[in-house]
Design a protein around this nucleic acid. Structure first.
Lengths: 215, 215
DNA sequence: CTAGGCAGAGAACAAAAGTTCTGTTTGAAA
DNA sequence: TTTCAAACAGAACTTTTGTTCTCTGCCTAG
């Protein structure tokens, strides 16, 4: 843990400390290494390295910087203060899974998805799945498409998910509507008709986050 | 330009130089800064910094490393020797464009696409386009989908592209088949019928690289 | 007013780190 | 074998760079 007691917001920092923080970030973008005390001093027109050292230590205390003592250019900006990546990598599986235990050692193919699709949640149970001809999905999903799922066994009313119909041993992408003991699977294309099942007839495989199709 | 005369492959390097190169890369992954001569020396069980310096200079000459003289931890691995990013960012536009001149100053919304979609080509003329209800595309493309296009005015026979029908002032995503003076636009859904146009009746907007749909 | 903490100045110091120099070993080519 | 360049060893040297110390001005609580 850090040494700070209460969370400090960037805006609450001393203006000098904000300048130094921003300088370090810009410097690291431009070069592949961090700045020295003296480079910060010169770059920000500060008159002494001790002043830089002073504020750097304040920034470290506040958790905005990490520093390896006595190591030259040993400043680091913690990950959570860097730009969040706008894409994340998820495992690419060949078949529907209801548990990740079966594929934990699998480190093979992965697929990149926009961070936005996670809607702020972790990517733990998210995986990508390439649709093959055996799985006939909704008409809006084509053969060869990559469907991104979050593995979960429950869905809220109105959410779109992948469900398995054990009777037919088939999976479908449908919008779920709950009606008492029944669940209504609505196709995404309005020309098709919704079908109603008993809740225990179907198994929810996951929530559908997105779809990628390469032409 | 670099000082090297002929291209050198990594495998042709002295084994010691390969070890040093790999060490630097691993070190940079672990820490946020590069190693010093001495750290390389200790890490690889080399007996003198001069040996490290020697091989580092060979690597710089061969173009595998960049080095800022006299700067501590000033080693850098050129971009083309790092892992290529598996996603790239392209501009996100609101309407079909036939030239990028009209949107060069536009630095706003961008969208992440898998590098794979570029099929090795540059991302220069690639942009993303969110489909709205006014543009009724092929049935496999839904309202709200993001279509990724490479802006180009020509397509090879059999390629899928976005074309504009000036008569109707509408755009469509179709597979193009050339038949002499005619071009046949084949829908991606087999239930729909292909339509034949004269070549000068339609304008090719771009090649469709992929599609992304967030649920 | 005064004490004390915070920010800044300036300088010196010590450690880290790049560079250079001389000499030795090694291995392949002549 | 001889020769020569590449590779290695060891050490010293210089520059870079982090750290520390003292002193000063400023502001505020008491």
């Amino acid at each position: 843990m850090t040494t700070r007691n209460k969370p400090i917001y960037f805006e609450q920092l001393h203006s000098q400390q904000r300048r130094i923080f921003n300088f370090i970030k810009r410097f690291m973008d431009r070069h592949s290494y961090g700045p020295t005390m003296r480079e910060i001093m010169i770059g920000l027109d500060i008159t002494s390295t001790s002043v830089v050292d002073y504020h750097v230590n304040r920034l470290v205390e506040a958790g905005f910087l990490e520093k390896v003592p006595s190591i030259s250019r040993g400043l680091r900006i913690p990950d959570h203060y860097l730009e969040p990546p706008n894409s994340v990598s998820v495992p690419m599986l060949n078949e529907v899974v209801t548990s990740f235990a079966e594929c934990v050692p699998y480190q093979g193919c992965r697929h990149e998805i926009p961070t936005e699709w996670l809607r702020g949640k972790a990517a733990n149970d998210v995986y990508a799945l390439r649709v093959n001809t055996h799985l006939m999905y909704d008409a809006m999903v084509n053969d060869g498409d990559v469907v991104v799922l979050r593995r979960q066994n429950r869905l809220n009313d109105g959410e779109i998910g992948m469900v398995m119909l054990p009777a037919k041993n088939e999976t479908r992408i449908r919008r779920l509507k709950y009606e008492g003991e029944w669940v209504c699977l609505e196709p995404l294309m309005s020309v098709m008709q919704p079908v109603r099942y008993r809740r225990d007839e179907i198994q929810i495989v996951g929530k559908v986050l997105g779809l990628m199709r390469q032409f």
